[in-house]
């Protein structure tokens, strides 16, 4: 007996979900299977027979110091970029929630960078922050070479973080502001009657009630910073200077398409996938316990 409000028919649901299943089979599961196979074979880039090599690809990878370095860079970028984005969005959302004269305008225009997110933001911002004529070029008149993302790896990483933050604030700001505005005015009034000032209410009222939205933002930003890194690196630094922005997502692409090392590249994909799944699970295990869903 079907549950209430559900339709009968054995073939309908299969037919309806078939387009989706077909697409993910073709462009997701099949490539994953091929990638799995490649990581245990030595694949020739221009065809020819593949040779089974067991775990040799993994061995080769674990001896490659650049692999560890790239994985470390990915992790550092994920941490810094998402922390900065969520923090800055939170401060902006709290400010915009105060019904100031600027709030309405801010709510409108803070969404605009969304249109330019990713690679086009990378192109525009690498021009804006170029060492010769960019907005930070005055730093170089103080001390030559103080700001040079083209030659200095540290500056290049700062630039990546700024570009990431610029494109991602819109979404986080919208989510956090919606959460803040859902807190009833009467809570604020009650807290104020009890003598809680604005700072106190921020820490003891708004912050705890906003944990679901903050958690959502952290999860989104972790995943996005992992993915979007490619767009920003390709459009801004190409992994340079001297590998200082060569993150794992970018290394996989370069090894596979520019170095024709299909086996090495898919072995890294496999490890990256495991890492990604681990991070997602860890996020839920560590953070969600602190989230307060009840209002």
């Amino acid at each position: 007996m079907a549950r209430d409000g559900q339709f009968q028919g054995r073939w309908w649901p299969i037919l309806l979900s078939l387009p989706q299943l077909l697409l993910i089979f073709l462009f997701f599961y099949w490539p994953v299977v091929i990638g799995l196979k490649w990581s245990f074979f030595l694949e020739r880039p221009f065809g020819g027979s593949a040779e089974f090599v067991g775990l040799a690809n993994f061995q080769r990878l674990f001896q490659d110091t650049e692999f560890y370095a790239a994985a470390g860079r990915s992790l550092v970028f994920m941490l810094t970029a998402s922390a900065a984005t969520v923090l800055f969005s939170f401060v902006l959302a709290v400010a915009a929630d105060r019904k100031l004269r600027l709030s309405g305008f801010a709510r409108n225009v803070l969404f605009w960078p969304q249109a330019l997110a990713g690679a086009s933001a990378g192109v525009v911002l690498s021009y804006l922050f170029n060492p010769a004529t960019g907005v930070f070029s005055w730093l170089n008149t103080l001390s030559p070479g103080l700001w040079n993302p083209v030659l200095d790896g540290f500056d290049a990483n700062i630039l990546l973080n700024i570009a990431y933050m610029w494109g991602r604030i819109p979404i986080d700001f919208a989510i956090l502001l919606a959460g803040l505005q859902a807190i009833p005015e009467s809570y604020h009034q009650a807290a104020a009657v009890d003598g809680a000032g604005p700072w106190r209410r921020l820490l003891d009222l708004q912050l705890p009630l906003l944990t679901p939205q903050i958690f959502l933002c952290i999860v989104i930003e972790f995943n996005e910073s992992f993915n979007q890194a490619f767009k920003l690196i390709e459009s801004m630094t190409h992994g340079g200077p001297g590998n200082s922005t060569n993150q794992l997502v970018y290394k996989i692409f370069v090894d596979g398409f520019r170095g024709y090392d299909l086996s090495g590249s898919s072995t890294q994909s496999l490890i990256l996938m495991l890492l990604f799944i681990f991070i997602v699970v860890a996020q839920f295990a560590l953070l969600e316990r602190r989230v307060n869903y009840a209002r």
Binding site: P31, V32, I34, G35, N223, N227, F253, G256, S266, M273
Partner: peptide, 9 residues
């Protein structure tokens, strides 16, 4: 597994 990760295959 976003497309960036499984791009080669």
């Amino acid at each position: 597994m976003p497309i960036e990760v499984r791009i080669v295959s």
